Amino acid sequence: MTNNKNEVMEVLTGPERRRRWSAEEKLAMVRETFEPGKTVSMVARLHGINPNQLFQWRKLHQDGSLSAVSAGEEVVPASELSDALKQIKELQRLLGKKTMENEILREAVEVMKSRKWIARSPSLPGDDQ
């Protein structure tokens, strides 16, 4: 189908009315927008997409999400990553604290064994008195 300017217009028919672009195709279009003398609107028009879509892909590219998608990596929101990193830090702190408590208790048990206080304790299992 053509219009008055002799431009070719693609008409999508059938149940699938949206085109699917691979991550490589999106990245190529985004890179094209950074070429000298090219605008987002111009590149969008050349490829038959809405400029807003191309602006969105540029934003994803600047955030690193578009390249992560092309590399097959999972993309998560920055807030979710920040929350996960905070949780990791807190868990590492707690693990360090528990490790220190464990070492203190081991030393206490050794001291008590050396003084034979533990062997005399009737409350410990295995002691026959």
Rank of each mutant, 00 (worst) to 15 (best):
I104T: 12
L54Y: 04
Q92V: 03
H61C: 07
D63A: 14
R19C: 09
L81Y: 11
A78P: 12
I49L: 14
F55S: 11
F55M: 12
N102L: 04
S41V: 08
I49C: 14
S79F: 03
W57K: 05
R20P: 00
P51D: 05
V69Y: 07
E74C: 07
L27C: 05
S82L: 04
R31I: 00
V76I: 14
K89V: 05
Q92H: 11
E90P: 08
S82H: 09
R93H: 09
R93E: 03
E80Y: 14
W21P: 02
A71C: 10
E101N: 14
L95I: 12
V43T: 00
A68H: 09
V40R: 10
L46E: 15
G64A: 05
V69C: 00
G96P: 09
I104L: 13
A28Q: 02
N52M: 06
V43L: 04
V75A: 07
A84K: 13
Q56F: 11
E110C: 05
G48F: 10
Q92K: 15
K26M: 15
S67R: 12
H61N: 14
H61K: 04
E103C: 04
Q56G: 13
L105H: 06
I49F: 03
L94V: 08
N50H: 15
V43A: 03
T33H: 03
